[in-house]
């Protein structure tokens, strides 16, 4: 297991290398002088010169890439063009709201999606099953930022049950932290729970047609025990896989949705960076969140062995 963990982490290195290469070369694939592209239309020659020096544009590209990669690998994501602050520091300050939102959304989506999928598979063609189909289609067609406004309008502006916007750090108590995160987390969970529900249903249907399920039924095991003990555990691998893959969509939706609910997280940082044309920040955010996504999927791979003893590495 330890050997596999190390091998799996080593396999992630080339993937992250390619991600870094893509993020790095974006700036040089666009026509024109990258320093001028970054500086924008109204920049003075001094500003352009400053950016040129900051990027090390006087050196050949491959040397620049190696130097840049080394810097990134050491946790230095460069400095912001606009504020001059280290990007690593700026992202660190914004991590808590974003990770709070992501963690709560993942938990909520699993808590809703998995039982929903199990129930739909248990009574195939029944009303739960049809409800899941509708829920999935609606979830895929409702972009998170629009769903966010709809939920905020119903539960915050009209019913006044929950705050409209804002974020309270965890240090000010769990209830306040949770109250502000419920609406954004529900918003993000709509699509994600739908994906998890759909995969859980398909995977459960496969497992429920197995002989050992019939045997369990024949010897009188309680139906809920068959579903949740005998079947779900064996249906779990595709479910865990889709939870891992879905994190990419979830991260993307979080970046957008933070702006609906005025949550001061990485998404807000990104939008401010777009406004100021501050590419080092965007670069840093893309690298960090992609790395998070790759790491989550390594964790998912490692989970397989825990869930299914037949899988050995």
């Amino acid at each position: 297991m330890l050997g596999y963990t190390i091998r799996r982490l080593l396999m992630a290195v080339p993937v992250m290398g390619i991600v870094a290469l893509i993020v790095f070369s974006l700036l040089y694939l666009t026509p024109g002088d990258p320093a001028m592209v970054l500086a924008g239309d109204q920049a003075s020659p001094e500003q352009i010169e400053k950016i040129r020096a900051a990027l090390g544009l006087d050196q050949p590209p491959h040397l620049r890439f190696v130097a840049w990669l080394w810097q990134m690998a050491n946790g230095d994501l460069g400095t912001s063009i606009f504020s001059g602050e280290p990007v690593t520091h700026m992202i660190e300050q914004r991590l808590q709201p974003t990770f709070s939102l992501l963690a709560l959304s993942v938990l909520l989506s699993i808590a809703v999606g998995v039982p929903f999928g199990v129930a739909a598979a248990a009574r195939r063609g029944g009303w739960t099953d049809r409800a899941l189909t509708w829920f999935t289609t609606l979830g895929f067609s409702l972009p998170a930022f629009i769903a966010g406004y709809a939920l905020a309008f119903i539960f915050a502006t009209t019913l006044k049950w929950l705050p409209v916007q804002g974020f309270v750090p965890l240090s000010e108590g769990v209830p306040a932290w949770l109250r502000n995160l419920i609406l954004p987390a529900v918003t993000l969970s709509l699509v994600y729970a739908a994906i998890i529900g759909r995969v859980t249903r398909a995977s459960m249907l496969d497992v429920l047609s197995e002989d050992y399920i019939r045997t369990a039924r024949a010897k009188g095991v309680a139906p809920w025990r068959i579903l949740f003990r005998h079947a779900l555990q064996n249906a779990a691998v595709p479910v865990i896989t889709v939870i891992g893959i879905g994190i990419a969509t979830l991260i993307g939706s979080a970046v957008i949705t933070e702006n609906v609910f005025a949550i001061p997280g990485v998404g807000r940082l990104t939008v401010d960076a777009i406004l100021h044309r501050d590419y080092p920040i965007i670069q840093g955010v893309v690298l960090m969140l992609s790395a998070a996504y790759v790491l989550v999927n390594i964790a998912v791979d490692l989970c397989y062995t825990l869930l299914d003893p037949r899988i050995r590495y």
Binding site: P14, I22, L26, A248, T270, I274, S290, Y293
Partner: peptide, 24 residues
Amino acid sequence: MRVMDGVMSIPAILLAIALMAVTG
């Protein structure tokens, strides 16, 4: 396929944001 894996390791909206940031 390695390059495609790399592209797909970047959450879609973030890659699009990065591309838009350099192109305008």
